[in-house]
Protein backbone atom coordinates (compact mmCIF):
# COMPACT_ATOMS: atom_id res chain seq x y z
CA UNK A 1 0.00 0.00 0.00
CA UNK A 2 2.88 2.33 -0.73
CA UNK A 3 0.73 4.72 -2.79
CA UNK A 4 -1.45 5.47 0.23
CA UNK A 5 0.96 7.77 1.98
CA UNK A 6 -1.77 10.20 3.05
CA UNK A 7 -2.68 11.13 6.59
CA UNK A 8 -5.57 8.72 6.89
CA UNK A 9 -3.35 5.84 5.98
CA UNK A 10 -0.77 6.53 8.67
CA UNK A 11 -3.49 6.93 11.31
CA UNK A 12 -5.03 3.66 10.19
CA UNK A 13 -1.60 2.09 10.37
CA UNK A 14 -1.09 3.26 13.97
CA UNK A 15 -4.40 1.64 14.83
CA UNK A 16 -3.87 -1.56 12.89
CA UNK A 17 -0.41 -2.40 14.15
CA UNK A 18 -1.75 -3.12 17.64
CA UNK A 19 -4.07 -5.79 16.27
CA UNK A 20 -1.47 -8.13 14.83
CA UNK A 21 1.98 -6.77 14.06
CA UNK A 22 2.65 -5.52 17.61
CA UNK A 23 -0.17 -7.31 19.40
CA UNK A 24 0.39 -7.36 23.15
CA UNK A 25 1.11 -9.56 24.97
CA UNK A 26 2.08 -12.07 22.27
CA UNK A 27 4.35 -9.96 20.07
CA UNK A 28 5.25 -7.21 22.49
CA UNK A 29 5.78 -9.33 25.59
CA UNK A 30 4.49 -6.66 27.96
CA UNK A 31 1.67 -6.76 30.46
CA UNK A 32 2.06 -10.43 31.17
CA UNK A 33 0.81 -10.34 34.75
CA UNK A 34 -2.85 -9.51 34.02
CA UNK A 35 -2.72 -11.77 30.96
CA UNK A 36 -2.00 -14.73 33.15
CA UNK A 37 -3.89 -13.76 36.26
CA UNK A 38 -7.39 -12.76 35.19
CA UNK A 39 -7.98 -14.93 32.15
CA UNK A 40 -9.68 -17.86 33.87
CA UNK A 41 -12.93 -16.69 32.25
CA UNK A 42 -13.83 -14.69 29.16
CA UNK A 43 -15.73 -12.08 31.16
CA UNK A 44 -12.83 -11.21 33.44
CA UNK A 45 -10.46 -11.09 30.49
CA UNK A 46 -12.64 -8.63 28.60
CA UNK A 47 -13.23 -6.47 31.67
CA UNK A 48 -9.49 -6.30 32.32
CA UNK A 49 -8.80 -5.52 28.67
CA UNK A 50 -11.30 -2.67 28.63
CA UNK A 51 -9.99 -1.22 31.91
CA UNK A 52 -6.48 -1.28 30.45
CA UNK A 53 -7.76 0.27 27.22
CA UNK A 54 -9.30 3.14 29.20
CA UNK A 55 -6.13 3.83 31.17
CA UNK A 56 -3.95 3.55 28.07
CA UNK A 57 -6.17 5.93 26.12
CA UNK A 58 -6.20 8.46 28.96
CA UNK A 59 -2.47 8.26 29.59
CA UNK A 60 -1.59 8.51 25.89
CA UNK A 61 -3.80 11.60 25.49
CA UNK A 62 -2.51 13.37 28.60
CA UNK A 63 1.15 12.48 28.06
CA UNK A 64 1.01 13.48 24.42
CA UNK A 65 -0.63 16.79 25.45
CA UNK A 66 1.97 17.64 28.08
CA UNK A 67 4.95 16.17 26.24
CA UNK A 68 6.57 19.55 25.58
CA UNK A 69 6.31 20.74 29.19
CA UNK A 70 7.76 17.79 31.10
CA UNK A 71 11.51 17.85 31.73
CA UNK A 72 13.11 14.64 30.47
CA UNK A 73 14.78 13.88 33.82
CA UNK A 74 11.50 13.60 35.70
CA UNK A 75 9.35 12.21 32.90
CA UNK A 76 9.06 8.66 34.20
CA UNK A 77 7.92 9.87 37.62
CA UNK A 78 5.44 12.27 36.02
CA UNK A 79 4.03 9.54 33.74
CA UNK A 80 3.66 7.12 36.62
CA UNK A 81 1.68 9.64 38.65
CA UNK A 82 -0.61 10.37 35.68
CA UNK A 83 -1.15 6.63 35.14
CA UNK A 84 -1.76 6.00 38.85
CA UNK A 85 -4.47 8.68 38.94
CA UNK A 86 -6.20 7.20 35.87
CA UNK A 87 -6.07 3.74 37.41
CA UNK A 88 -7.66 5.09 40.58
CA UNK A 89 -10.51 6.45 38.44
CA UNK A 90 -10.94 3.11 36.63
CA UNK A 91 -10.85 1.19 39.90
CA UNK A 92 -13.49 3.39 41.56
CA UNK A 93 -15.68 3.21 38.46
CA UNK A 94 -15.56 -0.59 38.39
CA UNK A 95 -16.20 -0.81 42.12
CA UNK A 96 -19.24 1.48 41.84
CA UNK A 97 -20.84 0.13 38.66
CA UNK A 98 -19.74 -3.49 38.42
CA UNK A 99 -19.01 -4.71 41.97
CA UNK A 100 -18.81 -8.43 41.05
CA UNK A 101 -16.24 -7.80 38.34
CA UNK A 102 -14.27 -5.49 40.59
CA UNK A 103 -14.26 -8.22 43.21
CA UNK A 104 -13.16 -10.91 40.76
CA UNK A 105 -10.29 -8.80 39.42
CA UNK A 106 -9.22 -7.83 42.95
CA UNK A 107 -5.78 -6.27 43.27
CA UNK A 108 -5.11 -6.72 39.56
CA UNK A 109 -6.98 -3.50 38.74
CA UNK A 110 -4.59 -1.32 40.77
CA UNK A 111 -1.75 -3.32 39.28
CA UNK A 112 -2.54 -1.73 35.90
CA UNK A 113 -0.30 1.06 37.24
CA UNK A 114 2.75 -1.11 36.73
CA UNK A 115 1.46 -2.75 33.55
CA UNK A 116 4.47 -2.19 31.34
CA UNK A 117 2.27 -1.77 28.24
CA UNK A 118 1.08 1.62 29.44
CA UNK A 119 4.44 3.05 30.45
CA UNK A 120 5.94 1.39 27.38
CA UNK A 121 3.52 3.11 24.99
CA UNK A 122 4.07 6.43 26.80
CA UNK A 123 7.82 6.11 26.33
CA UNK A 124 7.78 4.66 22.85
CA UNK A 125 4.92 6.58 21.29
CA UNK A 126 2.93 9.24 23.16
CA UNK A 127 5.88 11.38 24.20
CA UNK A 128 7.03 11.73 20.60
CA UNK A 129 3.72 12.09 18.75
CA UNK A 130 0.77 14.48 18.60
CA UNK A 131 -2.54 13.66 20.25
CA UNK A 132 -4.49 12.13 17.34
CA UNK A 133 -1.92 9.43 16.41
CA UNK A 134 -1.48 8.73 20.13
CA UNK A 135 -5.22 8.07 20.42
CA UNK A 136 -5.08 5.68 17.47
CA UNK A 137 -2.06 3.94 18.96
CA UNK A 138 -3.83 3.54 22.31
CA UNK A 139 -7.01 2.21 20.66
CA UNK A 140 -5.11 -0.29 18.55
CA UNK A 141 -2.88 -1.62 21.31
CA UNK A 142 -5.76 -1.58 23.82
CA UNK A 143 -8.09 -3.52 21.53
CA UNK A 144 -5.33 -5.95 20.63
CA UNK A 145 -4.73 -6.52 24.32
CA UNK A 146 -8.45 -7.03 24.98
CA UNK A 147 -8.66 -9.52 22.12
CA UNK A 148 -5.66 -11.43 23.45
CA UNK A 149 -7.14 -11.60 26.93
CA UNK A 150 -10.49 -12.74 25.53
CA UNK A 151 -8.74 -15.45 23.50
CA UNK A 152 -6.81 -16.68 26.53
CA UNK A 153 -10.00 -16.51 28.59
CA UNK A 154 -12.07 -18.49 26.12
CA UNK A 155 -9.51 -21.28 25.79
CA UNK A 156 -9.15 -21.60 29.55
CA UNK A 157 -12.87 -21.31 30.29
CA UNK A 158 -13.81 -23.78 27.56
CA UNK A 159 -11.33 -26.42 28.68
CA UNK A 160 -11.58 -25.69 32.40
CA UNK A 161 -15.36 -25.40 32.85
CA UNK A 162 -16.69 -26.56 29.47
CA UNK A 163 -18.40 -23.20 29.03
CA UNK A 164 -17.97 -19.82 27.35
CA UNK A 165 -19.32 -16.70 29.07
CA UNK A 166 -20.92 -19.12 31.56
CA UNK A 167 -22.90 -20.85 28.79
CA UNK A 168 -22.41 -24.61 28.85
CA UNK A 169 -21.00 -25.32 25.43
CA UNK A 170 -19.72 -28.81 25.93
CA UNK A 171 -22.20 -31.40 27.14
CA UNK A 172 -22.18 -33.32 30.40
CA UNK A 173 -19.85 -35.92 28.82
CA UNK A 174 -17.05 -33.39 29.07
CA UNK A 175 -14.71 -33.86 31.99
CA UNK A 176 -13.37 -30.35 32.87
CA UNK A 177 -9.62 -29.96 32.81
CA UNK A 178 -9.19 -28.39 36.24
CA UNK A 179 -5.55 -27.61 35.46
CA UNK A 180 -6.64 -24.95 32.97
CA UNK A 181 -8.18 -22.84 35.74
CA UNK A 182 -5.08 -23.18 37.91
CA UNK A 183 -1.98 -21.01 37.51
CA UNK A 184 -0.21 -23.83 35.67
CA UNK A 185 -2.86 -23.72 32.93
CA UNK A 186 -2.36 -19.99 32.48
CA UNK A 187 1.36 -20.41 31.82
CA UNK A 188 0.72 -23.35 29.52
CA UNK A 189 -1.91 -21.59 27.36
CA UNK A 190 0.13 -18.39 27.18
CA UNK A 191 3.30 -20.24 26.18
CA UNK A 192 1.49 -22.24 23.52
CA UNK A 193 -0.23 -19.17 22.09
CA UNK A 194 3.11 -17.37 21.77
CA UNK A 195 4.46 -20.40 19.93
CA UNK A 196 1.39 -20.39 17.65
CA UNK A 197 1.80 -16.68 16.85
CA UNK A 198 5.50 -17.26 16.12
CA UNK A 199 4.63 -20.17 13.86
CA UNK A 200 2.00 -18.24 11.89
CA UNK A 201 4.26 -15.25 11.37
CA UNK A 202 7.19 -17.40 10.29
CA UNK A 203 4.88 -19.15 7.78
CA UNK A 204 3.75 -15.75 6.52
CA UNK A 205 7.33 -14.56 6.16
CA UNK A 206 8.20 -17.67 4.15
CA UNK A 207 5.16 -17.25 1.92
CA UNK A 208 5.97 -13.62 1.13
Amino acid sequence: MAENNGNTYSLWHEFKKGLWQDIPPFRLVLGTCPTLAVTNSVKNGIAMGLATLFVLLGSNIIISAVRKYVAPQVRIAAYVVIIALLVTVADMFLAAKFPPISKALGPYVPLIVVNCIILGRAEAFAQKNPIIPSIMDALGIGLGFTMSLATMGSIRELLGFGSILQFKVLGSWFEPWIVMILPAGAFLVFGSLIALVNYISSRKAEGA
Partner: peptide
Protein backbone atom coordinates in the same frame (compact mmCIF):
# COMPACT_ATOMS: atom_id res chain seq x y z
CA UNK B 1 13.57 -27.05 20.84
CA UNK B 2 11.16 -26.62 17.87
CA UNK B 3 11.61 -23.16 16.42
CA UNK B 4 8.28 -21.50 17.29
CA UNK B 5 8.69 -22.60 20.91
CA UNK B 6 12.13 -21.08 21.40
CA UNK B 7 12.59 -18.20 23.83
CA UNK B 8 9.69 -16.93 25.85
CA UNK B 9 7.30 -19.68 24.86
CA UNK B 10 9.31 -22.54 26.31
CA UNK B 11 10.08 -20.48 29.42
CA UNK B 12 6.38 -20.08 30.11
CA UNK B 13 5.71 -23.76 29.55
CA UNK B 14 8.46 -24.64 32.04
CA UNK B 15 6.92 -22.13 34.45
CA UNK B 16 3.65 -24.00 34.05
CA UNK B 17 5.30 -27.20 35.22
CA UNK B 18 7.00 -25.39 38.09
CA UNK B 19 3.62 -24.01 39.15
CA UNK B 20 2.24 -27.56 39.20
CA UNK B 21 5.18 -28.70 41.32
CA UNK B 22 4.74 -25.81 43.75
CA UNK B 23 1.10 -26.81 44.25
Amino acid sequence: IPKPFQGISITLIIASMMALAFM
